Simulated assay, not measured.
Amino acid sequence: MFDVLFAHIQEKVALTEQDREGIQSVFMARKLRKRQYLLQQGAICTHLSFVTKGLLRAYNVDEKGHEHINLFGWEGWWISDLNSFLFQEEALLNIDAIEETQLLMISLADYNALMVRVPVMERYFRLLYQNSLATKDRRLISSITHTAEEKYLQMAHRHPQIIQRVPQHLIASYLGLAPETISRIRKSLALRQSR
């Protein structure tokens, strides 16, 4: 399980054997069944989770009962309600498994201790947070300025594995589109490719 985590970390920073031991000592493994919650809206997010296998979604539910997916998390991704985790406030997001999932989880106390014990992890997380902010900016701009087809094509280009693994209605929710719109886009693209 730790191989996936270490490979991800080493894409950004170098780890010593002592760093690896320090990291392993503060994570706990957890498995989720398909549709099992990792976090429910209103609870406190007690752990930051790294996906070693499987697929999750983070979403909120509006007053009309409609789901709005904020994030998909698959192998090599971190997932949590970060505001709830860092500030120990009620979560605004639900997180549940789309597929059977395996996670490595770290508590807030262990996360803070890890930054002191393994200083290179502070740089690693800073780089992750920078990338996350840039991605959120791109997504916001895309949601305002791009057509439905452009949004779908960007997602298919950036994350082709998600297009294959995630049901169409969940992709629609993530893109802020109706499922019928995704069907129309897919049919139109297939028609163009067959010419």
Rank of each mutant, 00 (worst) to 15 (best):
L133I: 06
L103P: 12
S188M: 10
Q130V: 11
T181K: 12
T181V: 08
Q24D: 01
L170N: 07
K53T: 03
L32A: 05
H47D: 13
W74N: 11
L128P: 00
Q18K: 15
R35C: 01
K187A: 06
M28V: 14
H157W: 03
Q161N: 12
Q161H: 13
S132V: 01
L177A: 05
Q102L: 05
Y59D: 05
R30D: 04
Q164A: 14
S25F: 02
L140K: 04
R195P: 00
E90F: 03
D137G: 05
L39M: 08
K136R: 11
A134Q: 07
L128W: 05
S49P: 06
A178N: 13
A58T: 06
S49F: 04
F27W: 09
G76A: 07
Q40K: 15
R117W: 03
V166Q: 05
Y152L: 04
L133N: 02
I162N: 01
S183N: 13
I79K: 04
K53I: 00
D3A: 10
F87A: 07
L133T: 01
I9D: 02
V116M: 10
S143W: 02
M155G: 00
Q168L: 15
I95S: 04
Q41S: 14
L93Q: 06
R138S: 03
Q41F: 01
L103E: 11
S143N: 15
R192Q: 15
I185R: 09
R184T: 03
I182D: 03
R123Q: 10
H157R: 14
V4W: 08
E17V: 10
F85A: 03
A43I: 00
L191W: 08
L48C: 06
Y152E: 04
Q88F: 04
E75D: 10
T181R: 12
H157K: 15
R138F: 01
E99H: 13
P119L: 05
H169M: 02
Q24K: 15
L114A: 06
L39C: 08
L32C: 06
L48W: 08
L103G: 10
F85M: 07
T147N: 08
I141T: 11
I98V: 14
F87L: 07
K136H: 10
V166T: 03
M1P: 12
I141P: 01
E180Y: 06
K151S: 02
P160R: 09
E21Y: 05
L93F: 12
M1Q: 09
G176W: 05
Y152C: 05
S173M: 05
M28P: 00
Y152I: 04
S194D: 03
C45V: 00
I79W: 10
R33Q: 14
A97N: 09
R20Q: 15
E67K: 14
F27I: 04
P179R: 11
N83P: 00
V118D: 08
L191P: 00
L108E: 10
S80N: 09
L15A: 07
N83A: 04
W74T: 12
F72Q: 07
H146G: 00
L189C: 09
L153V: 14
V118A: 07
V116F: 07
L177V: 09
R123C: 02
